[in-house]
Design a binder for these strands. Structure first.
Lengths: 134, 134
DNA sequence: ACATAGTATAAGTATATTATTATATACCCC
DNA sequence: GGGGTATATAATAATATACTTATACTATGT
């Protein structure tokens, strides 16, 4: 989930790919049209489109020898908002990928709101009772 | 605008940084706590936090020698949704960064909906009046 | 002032990404 | 099948990123 979400965000986090997305939002375009419009090489377009397709951000419709690319605005929005918000809204203990991290985090939390930092511990000790992180 | 939007998405498009964001959404944490929780080196945390700060995704509050990091859920949501949606909703001709690209695109559009592809043009001629694609 | 905790930065290395050039594949029309 | 178009892939070079180790900086407590 984390890796996949990161992947979608990363796919969009590149200027050339954002431009492709932007023009595809105007209308369906084939690779050679993107080449014309963006004024960049055909392999460069193909490679970026590949990344976008792998992230399921663009659809492809083959007509004759052309590869027409398009985006579904709603799907696109969902591609960003849903994975990210789902990740953010999922409880930490429901994320298997963060099992070890969350265990350490819960230890932190269990320790009556004391930080993991040694200075924090020191301060805590001074002020009375500490049971620390491990 | 495009570069900046790409930058924000890129900052979030990395697993370690997403994890940091996820834990900061639980509560404010300092660098050394993130080190503990994530189980990774301190420079690694500092470096990723730097990227997140540069993208204005986390806030920093210095207390004693600690650097407490936090995120504002709303700001975070906006950091993703607003830049991206603004980009998507802004008319092509209002994006100075895409001036050249858009001029070529409008040429395409002006040509009675014919594609830039040579094959597309050929088809147009042959079929007399195919309103191609879109 | 000294020792220590917390954080930041520098240097180095390994890997990944981007872009270019050249080439291969697929498809269409004649 | 030959010629041409559209796209994909391979090889390569340039650059960027992520991570580690070592070190510097800053603040704090004694």
């Amino acid at each position: 989930m984390i890796d996949q979400t990161a992947n979608v965000l990363k796919a969009l986090g590149e200027p050339t790919r954002l431009k492709i997305i932007k023009f595809l939002s105007a209308r369906e375009l084939c690779v050679c049209e993107l080449v014309e419009v963006l004024g960049i090489s055909q392999p460069r377009v193909s490679q970026h489109v590949k990344v976008l397709k792998q992230a399921s951000l663009v659809n492809e419709r083959k007509v004759r020898q052309n590869s027409y690319l398009s985006i579904d605005e709603a799907v696109l929005k969902d591609a960003i908002i849903i994975p990210f918000q789902t990740l953010m809204q999922t409880r930490l203990d429901k994320l298997p990928e963060l099992k070890a991290e969350n265990q350490r985090f819960e230890l932190l939390e269990a320790n009556t709101a004391v930080t993991a930092c040694k200075e924090g511990n020191k301060r805590k000790k001074f002020s009375g009772n500490s049971n620390q992180i491990a």
